[in-house]
Design a protein around this nucleic acid. Sequence first.
DNA 1: CACCATGTTCCTTG
DNA 2: CCAAGGAACATGGT
Length: 282
Amino acid sequence: MPELPEVETLVRHLRRRVVGERVRDAEIFRPRSIWRTSTRQLVRKLVGQRIRDLTRRAKYLRFDLENGGCFLVHLGMTGRLFVVRDPSAARKRDKHDVAHFHFADSTLVFHDPRKFGHMELGEASLHGLGPEPFDQKFSEGYLAEKLGHSRTPIKVRLLDQKLVAGLGNIYASEVLWRARIDPRVPCHRLGAIHLARLRKEIIATLRDAIRFGGGLSLNFDSPNPRDGLFYYGSGARRDNPSEHFDAYDREGKACRRCRTPITRTVQGGRSTFFCPRCQKHS
DNA sequence: CACCATGTTCCTTG
DNA sequence: CCAAGGAACATGGT
């Protein structure tokens, strides 16, 4: 998955390659990756439109069209977007290509081996989402109100996009490690001090990850796996031999603060990594 | 073969 | 009504 930082990094790279371009043709290889509408409808609404802007909302990429409409892409777990500039190689269709969007001199490719990603017209999917972490609405008061009486473990709640948009399984563990909060703690047991720390670390962790992504030399011009998206880890390990994450995928390795081995547990069917010593209950 | 994987939705069970 | 758990979507890596 691209979580919020990866999507943000992708948007920043892709922007100058697609904004202002007109969609001349669209080839849909996997209709089931289109939600809420038919292939025919999607193609009809897209072809001929100029892309006025490309932005991110939660983990969605949002393409604004000149007619006022919008087109959303969610990358799921393994989705990638890149622009092929090679004019001759109209990019031979790869096994996992979901769609090709042709511009005058380039092609936007949506590639998704695991096929959990999707595309759709309109912004219906954005409606129920919680605030962006960097938005003023994401305040301590808001967090307190939303977490209030929930007995659900905090880690599980952080994955809920209606609470705050953009965290996924990797950064949820990272945030809690930084905030020194036990992922298993029921939300209602978090006091004001912890909520404040939690909010601060959600923002700081994502901000740092975006900054880190901005500093990597990524390649979004080809299917080259070096586009570094998923995850920064793989790109980062090359640019930076030391591991990038503090908790995620570090089971058994020494906590960077106290040297205690990082523990892995399962919550809601997904792995959580934390330090049993410095992430104490509330 | 077994198990793991960046996401989300839907359904069942309690 | 809510929470928790599992399954589903589908494929590849170890």
